[in-house]
């Protein structure tokens, strides 16, 4: 049975009318038309659908939308503020940290949560933090450099 659910997405209150079995990813993409998070595996194996719920990365393809009710949902669309890209986004462009870009929104969201909990990371820690975000194009190293660069930048 469908029901009305109030979600907070990128700081905006959004009311959606959904079935309990709707995943957060489906609701973000199909109801709210926030298509930045991608479905690549549909079973939590690749991280392309990563969004933040209360600051923690979740695979939104295996998270029910109702699990996120009353929590702060953050997607790639909420990252740039006041017309400016987030430093992570800039760093990803600078470092050629994407090729096809399909995994990029998920990886950037993982990186954002990671830098919050670990502001001065080593490369090894960064690799581990994005180890659940599968990328088929880049070989990861440029993304690791981009995240490291952002971390160093935050210190300034």
């Amino acid at each position: 049975m469908k029901r009305s659910v109030l979600l907070s997405v990128n700081g905006e209150r959004r009311e959606v009318f959904i079935k309990p079995n709707s995943t957060l990813l489906e609701v973000l993409r199909d109801e709210l038309l926030l298509t930045g998070a991608k479905e690549a595996c549909g079973s939590g194996e690749c991280g392309a659908c990563t969004v933040l719920v209360d600051g923690k990365p979740v695979n939104s393809c295996i998270t029910l939308a109702m699990e996120a009710e009353g929590k702060a949902i953050e997607t790639i669309e909420g990252l740039s503020k006041e017309g400016k890209l987030h430093p992570l986004q800039e760093a990803f462009i600078d470092h050629h940290a994407f090729q096809c870009g399909f995994c990029t929104p998920g990886m950037i969201m993982s990186a954002k949560a990671f830098l919050k909990r670990s502001p001065e990371p080593t490369k090894e820690e960064i690799r581990n933090a994005i180890s659940g975000n599968i990328c088929r194009c880049t070989g990861y190293e440029n993304a690791v450099d981009a995240i490291l660069d952002t971390a160093v930048g935050t210190e300034k």
Binding site: G36, I76, F98, T104
Partner: peptide, 19 residues
């Protein structure tokens, strides 16, 4: 040089077929 379409990709606004 940076990818000319980089900003679209990192903001999730590059439209793939599924989008």
């Amino acid at each position: 040089p940076r990818r000319t379409d980089g900003a679209l990709i990192v903001t999730g606004r590059a439209d793939f077929t599924g989008d």
